[in-house]
Design a protein around this nucleic acid. Structure first.
Length: 213
DNA sequence: AACTCGGGGCA
DNA sequence: TGCCCAGAGTT
């Protein structure tokens, strides 16, 4: 894929989703870790509403543990999968205190062992809390990137590497959110709106009778 | 790779 | 109501 075409795709996505509210609010690696765990199957907008209240008094492993699983559940219950998340967050706080001196680790293989933290959450923390280059590939980023030809790789890891190679570094964060928005609003998994898609002329998927790319 | 979990958003 | 997930964990 040429640089010009990538530029056209990014410009189109920006014109479509540049104004959308996106991204998690956080003031520390720990806050981002908790917010990202909460964001599973839940929009950033909703997570931000919850954490704005939660982090006022509970923004460290110690204070979260003082709040307790029940207290935490009451505060995050609108995020979906709340019982599981509350349990995992409490377990993660325990492990941060006992194994990491209360500090969020900056290594992928360590982050991913924390309860409630998978490769997507770990990737988000790595790329946003620490200055470590990464693009978090979730289901939307994965699907949209492959369909429009931004990343021709087949596995999540390959798509991630391809995106990092082809997208200018200063656009990584924005491109990530734009791809997610496009995946939700237009390039959906089951019934993509290819007819109304602004990327149709640039896309290989739309001309292939919607066969999974 | 396929399945489960499980609450909110949306038509 | 019914269907779908801005995932993770388990088999």
């Amino acid at each position: 894929m040429t640089k010009k075409k990538i530029g056209q795709i990014l410009a189109t996505l920006e014109s479509l989703y540049g104004q959308e509210q996106c991204g998690l609010d956080f003031n520390s690696p720990f806050e981002l870790l908790i917010a990202t765990i909460l964001s599973a199957q839940c929009t950033d907008v909703r997570v931000n509403i919850v954490t704005r209240d939660l982090f006022k008094d509970y923004n460290t492993p110690e204070t979260i543990l003082k709040l307790g699983e029940e207290g935490l559940l009451a505060k995050i219950k609108t995020c979906g999968l709340a019982k599981t998340k509350a349990k995992n967050i409490v377990l993660t706080c325990h492990r941060l205190l006992t194994e990491y001196n209360g500090i969020v680790p900056d290594q992928m293989d360590e982050l991913i062992t924390l309860p409630g933290v998978g490769r997507k959450t770990a990737n988000v923390v790595m790329s946003n809390a620490f200055d470590i280059p990464a693009i978090a590939v979730d289901t939307h980023v994965f699907r949209v990137s492959r369909r429009i030809g931004l990343a021709a790789g087949k596995t999540v890891l390959e798509v991630e590497k391809e995106l990092m190679k082809s997208i200018p570094k200063d656009k990584w964060s924005q491109a990530h959110h734009w791809l997610i928005w496009h995946g939700r609003k237009c390039c959906t998994a089951r019934n993509p709106n290819c007819g109304g898609c602004m990327l149709h002329s640039l896309c290989v998927f739309g001309s292939q009778n919607f066969k999974e790319a």
